[in-house]
Write a protein that binds this DNA or RNA. Structure first.
Lengths: 255, 255
DNA sequence: TTGATCTGCATGTATAGACATGTTAACCTA
DNA sequence: TAGGTTAACATGTCTATACATGCAGATCAA
């Protein structure tokens, strides 16, 4: 559908008390929600929209920036603006690395490496769901760590990395407190963009319980998901088990 | 500390390849993280900053808008811009109402009301943490519901509402499928803005397990928190228990 | 003293234009 | 044909300015 058809029944009211950028934002939102714009579709360019409604491009940008923050669209410089295909994602969680967050709050935290191994993809059942998209037999590096705040263990994290990324972490330089994300960003110069994770409740099994120093069967949060680079390549599949009594998910829900 | 002292050692580099608004953003971020600006402190006004660095006010605004989105500052029109006191909030979760979300995915869902009662504040231990800020003895309306997807129960939700808001829900019109949020927004014309929630894992107790049709001791997600109106008044305190096998938290983490 | 009004200052919205930079596809050339 | 260049177009950054609107404190009037 060309821009004229798409926007033909839309209009803005310059005399309205509703800000113009809100009106534009809502027009685009409606087009997406009504299905007239499908995931992946390109949205009329900023110049087209500003011409269509006779408003300045900066005003259009205010609208599209908001939609980008809401994850309804993705904006690609030089290319254009598109309806986000992951628009069924119901929830959005922003966070920083856990270490820096805890450090900011004044807690000392560190990790203890349980083991670092080279394994074959599909050794682990969950890899089938990992998004790492490895062929069977491809090499992966698996790192298992226990994470502590002060002297209390609060999580077990198992990272699966493609061999090209993980090999540098297999040598003895991989000290207990090395940050995998730091290594990927600072040493390999791969910039990370996002992670898709799923969080579920679970019960601590025996080995888990021992490592976390809690009774077997205690409630835990289980997390698994994939971290992606800026180029949208999966760089890590993570499984984490977090103590329910020491770890809670703080959440601010906004409309 | 006056603006001159505060900003005296800061500077921006107009010839840098780093965008000016990023430089300003990071200066302010540093002032906050270093403690030179304390929670509640007022940040130099947009005009002061634009004069200080000899950049346009729109560029300053780009910086402060980002910090606002990161929850580091609060901007109050007519008043000024201040360091956010709740800056320890680590995570941000966006979501829509569950019903509309499930409906969008094609699932039929409904609720069954267990009971609706008028109670006194602090009848429930958790109310002390609820943010409803009621005096002891103030009247509250408590609504307990079991929520179903198709014919399977997936959650028990207990809502505590201030009497002025909840009283309209106590009459028989409160059908099983009435949406509390719909009622508040459509009938009372109170617009909702955000909710602060905490999510933790737990184990299903006997009554819970029976209602959710799962074995006693099964893993569940426990949620509690407060929903706020646009005017920042708490309108609901919610406790929810979600089946771990039917409910998972889908999460997209972004930088 | 109380209440209403005014005023200064803060942020909110909007403009029209300039230049920078990333992406793609068409084109040209060896 | 393969490879490099260019042009068109997209978004990114930035300016200087204007007027609107919200808030708080000062001022004035009953």
């Amino acid at each position: 559908m060309n821009p004229e058809q798409l926007l033909q029944d839309t209009h803005i009211d310059k005399s309205s008390y509703i800000p113009l950028y809100i009106q534009v934002r809502d027009i685009l939102k409606d087009l997406i929600n009504s299905g007239k714009l499908q995931p992946g579709d390109q949205i009329p360019s900023e110049n087209e929209l500003s011409a269509q409604y006779n408003i300045s491009r900066m005003t259009v940008r205010q609208a599209s920036q908001e939609l980008m923050r809401e994850d309804l669209i993705v904006i690609r410089r030089g290319e254009g603006t598109f309806v986000n295909s992951a628009s069924h994602t119901q929830m959005l969680l922003k966070l920083e690395g856990f270490s820096s967050e805890m450090a900011k709050l004044g807690y000392r935290n560190h990790s203890r490496v349980l083991d670092i191994q080279m394994i074959e993809a599909f050794d682990s059942f969950e890899l089938a769901y990992s998004g790492l998209e490895k062929e069977p037999g491809d090499a992966l590096v698996r790192i298992r760590r226990v994470r502590y705040v002060e002297e209390t263990p609060f999580a077990i994290e198992t990272s699966f990395l493609p061999f090209t990324i993980g090999q540098g972490l297999m040598d003895p330089r991989m000290a207990d407190d090395a940050s995998i994300y730091n290594y990927i960003e600072k040493e390999l110069h791969i910039r990370l963009s996002r992670a898709d994770h799923v969080i579920q409740p679970g019960l601590a099994e025996l080995e888990t319980a021992n490592l976390l120093e809690i009774p077997k069967g205690s409630p835990v949060l289980k997390l698994h998901g994939t971290t992606f680079s800026m180029k949208n390549k999966p760089v890590e599949y993570l499984e984490g088990i977090y103590r329910g009594d020491k770890y809670e998910l703080k959440v601010v829900i906004t409309k």
